[in-house]
Design a protein around this nucleic acid. Structure first.
Length: 365
DNA sequence: GTCCTGAATC
DNA sequence: GATTCAGGAC
């Protein structure tokens, strides 16, 4: 393969010195940076996928108290892991982290693999997370390009690191590999990310505070970011608050889709174009039908409660909550694995999404 | 395309 | 109050 282009680029040692010197005095003080513990770094990197530092910190602290070691995490039930994750979003990350911990115990004797290639084989590890753990925890000289670092490189070296081009992604990775000081890989990668977070910010970068301004090709000129037009679909969810003796029916969502593994009040999607040609779309009736067919429960859905809205990346959900009760003469009282009667004060013992917490709040929690 | 949430900004 | 933004893996 051709060597990365090194023509018309700054002296690497000078660039590295400038960046590392800045990092020594300006680095962010983050809980997972305190003692270089690979497990703590691994947990933080999973939480930091698609999630901002300030959001992660309280979850991180609680998670580490609950699962102090990789083996603690590996032997815990998924439900416990999800409970510690509830509210943080992107719950596949929690599943992947749990699966990865189990795989590391099973296949690596509980020792986190040290190389990017080995880490990439584990669930939930993509190029960034594998590079981050390999470099930050094990000081391997490999790239770890998060959104911040990509923006920094895209501005510093737009020719070599044009991340708008798909084909250039690999090229940029190889380019960066040649710039990592072999003995300071962790500091160098973190310096790029911190620079992106604090100085080379998305809009109005603070170029006067930049330690590598003299190496920068664009001098803060913001490259036009491609507008990501994502289409959001509107959904209406009928949500059943079935009450019995002060307890409510909770249901664990199965599968691998949206909010799977988390507990919710039994819900069904309602067609939007209701009312036309009498296609029975009364939310209450739909819920009764759903509860009867899927859980064998005869219920009476009654009062409607105030609608709640929740916005996901790709779904704009309007939740219509209804109070209901059991109707059958037989006391059907399912407390199976995925169906429970739970008092409002005990909701917090279950992993419940932020969306469903809005519903839970209606009946006091 | 699917998967989430909270903060920033209009 | 509604929209945008920020952040990776599969």
């Amino acid at each position: 393969m051709p060597a990365p282009s090194r023509t018309s680029l700054p002296e690497r040692p000078a660039f590295q010195r400038a960046l590392l010197r800045w990092y020594e005095t300006h680095q962010r003080s983050l809980p997972w940076r305190k003692n270089g513990n690979p497990y703590r770094i691994l947990v933080s990197e999973f939480m930091l996928q698609q999630t901002r530092v300030e959001t992660v910190i309280p979850y991180y602290e609680r998670f580490l108290k609950r699962f102090p070691s990789l083996r603690d995490l590996a032997k815990a039930p998924l439900q416990e892991v999800l409970k510690a994750w509830a509210g943080l979003g992107y719950y596949a990350r929690a599943r992947n982290l749990h699966e990865a911990a189990k795989a590391i115990v099973r296949e690596w004797g509980g020792k986190i693999p040290r190389t990017k290639e080995e880490l990439l084989l584990l669930p939930g590890f993509g190029p960034y997370t594998a590079g981050a753990v390999a470099s930050l925890a094990f000081h391997q000289p490999v790239p770890a390009l998060d959104g911040n670092a990509k923006r920094v490189l895209g501005r510093l070296f737009p020719e070599q690191c044009d991340f708008s081009r798909m084909s250039a992604k690999k090229q940029a990775d190889e380019f960066l590999a040649g710039w990592i000081p072999p003995r300071r890989a962790a500091d160098f990668n973190q310096a790029l990310m911190d620079l992106g977070a604090m100085v080379c910010i998305p809009s109005s970068p603070r170029c006067t505070a930049c330690p590598v301004f003299r190496f920068c090709a664009t001098k803060g000129k913001i490259p036009k970011k491609k507008r990501v037009v994502r289409k959001v679909r509107e959904e209406i969810w009928a949500v059943a608050l079935v009450e019995k003796d002060g307890k409510f029916l909770l249901h664990r969502k199965e599968g691998r889709g949206l909010l799977s593994g988390l507990w919710q009040f039994p819900s069904v999607a309602v067609e939007k174009n209701q009312g036309k040609r009498g296609n029975s779309q009364d939310p209450g009736k739909l819920l009764e039908k759903y509860l009867r067919e899927d859980f064998g429960l005869e219920t009476r859905i009654k009062t409607s409660l105030p609608e709640q809205e929740h916005l996901f990346t790709h779904i704009h959900a309007l939740m219509k909550p209804y109070l209901g009760s059991l109707a059958g003469t037989r006391p059907s009282f399912p407390n199976s694995g995925s169906l429970r009667w739970v008092g409002a004060s005990a909701f917090s013992r279950y992993p419940i999404s932020t969306a469903m917490c809005k519903i839970a709040a209606l009946v006091g929690s």
